[in-house]
Computed example of a mutant assay.
Amino acid sequence: MSENSRTPWVTLGLIVANLAMAFAIVFFPQLIDTTMFDPRRITPLSPLLCLFAHQNLVHLLGNMIFLAAVGPLVEFTRGGWRFAVIYLAGGLLGVNAHYFYCLLTPPGTPLLGASAAVASVVGYCAIRFARTKVPLAPNFGVPVEAIAILWLLIQVAGSFIQVGEQLRGGTAYWAHLGGFLAGLAFAFIFGGLRDARHQYGHEVLERMNIRGPAATLTAAEAILNQQPQNRTAQWQRIEALHGLDEGQKCLAAIDKFIVKATPLELAQALTILSERNALDTIRSVSRLKYADQLAGTHPELQLKLIQSVADQENDLRQPDALVSLLTLLPDPDSEEYKSTANHLETLYPHHPATESARQRGFLK
């Protein structure tokens, strides 16, 4: 699944698979024995199949509601295949936890249900989306950390209170715990903790923006001390320095920022440099390269970049900039066009750029 997709196909597929297994068991009750994980007689597929079979309707609906609540969060941010790994591998690790528990408490109880797999997803979300709210109704949401705590409380309570129909030994709480711990581990393996820190840092920056540039600068620098490559914090620091009129620090920060800037970030950074009349702090060859990148999206900024090189006497890139300027000026009869053409022919009569301009009809 594409990470930009807004339909959680893997989540929906897992829910459909669980529902399909439930219907199959209704019509073919003997499938219970085939899909069940029994520590006393393990089959090659039983550790996986048991994650899709449930002992009753309440068991099935409980797991599917939790999966529908937190599954899309993981799928949208980590991608479908990573989500599938967290779900299936976490579930299998939960089954293994149940197996080792049964070795210590013979004869062991059979296992059914997606609870271990869902617990793995909840464990991942407990780290990655601790502060994210899951919408349950219009204008009402519950933080994922609250869902995770609720999940754990259910497991603890279930250890002491047996509710409803039990299947050959009761609920496998060690499987749930094993899955949950696996999800916590996957949060570290797949960068969930790092992403959570980034998200929290961005939320702090948004709040500090309301207070002004000084507060934003303090928050951005605190984040960058722990996350030096955080692009949002880098840019917020630049804007704060610009707002506080810290010219030299702002220029130094921009110089580092634009090396890996996206087209939008590049345009924003160069706009600040233009406002400070500091475009010439960038090498002329880089300015012309950036002008090409901004062609069609930021024509005014493109023109300023080229003009800044064209105005630099004795710069090796000046003739190229003058030719580029001629291509952008709309009226060949304007004084600006004539002045630029005359400047090119006077200073660089035999330069390859001048010859190219003649061949293209820019010079009369």
Rank of each mutant, 00 (worst) to 15 (best):
S2I: 02
N4S: 09
N4G: 04
T11H: 00
L12M: 11
L14M: 06
V16M: 11
V16R: 03
A17Q: 08
I25A: 11
I25R: 03
T34Q: 13
T35W: 12
P39H: 04
R40N: 14
P47K: 05
L51V: 02
H54E: 11
N56F: 12
N56A: 05
L60W: 06
G79T: 00
F83S: 13
Y101K: 12
Y101S: 04
L104H: 06
L104Y: 00
L104D: 02
T105W: 11
G108C: 07
A114K: 03
V122L: 08
C125F: 02
A126V: 01
V134G: 05
A137E: 05
N139A: 15
P143F: 09
I147Q: 05
I149H: 08
L153A: 09
I161G: 00
I161L: 14
R168F: 08
L177A: 14
G179H: 04
G183D: 06
A185P: 07
A185F: 11
G191S: 07
G191I: 01
L193F: 13
Q199K: 02
H202P: 04
E203L: 07
R211L: 15
T218E: 15
A219I: 02
E221R: 10
Q226M: 14
P228L: 09
P228G: 01
Q234K: 06
Q236S: 15
H242Y: 13
G243L: 07
E246Q: 09
E246M: 00
Q248G: 12
L251M: 13
D255T: 10
F257L: 08
I258H: 03
I258E: 03
V259C: 06
V259Y: 00
P263C: 10
E275T: 13
D280C: 10
D280T: 14
R283H: 13
S286K: 12
R287M: 03
R287W: 11
I306E: 05
V309S: 10
D311A: 15
E313P: 00
R317V: 11
V323G: 08
L325E: 08
D333P: 06
A341R: 03
T346N: 08
P349H: 05
H350G: 13
H350N: 15
H351M: 03
A357H: 04
R360M: 13
R360A: 15
G361I: 12
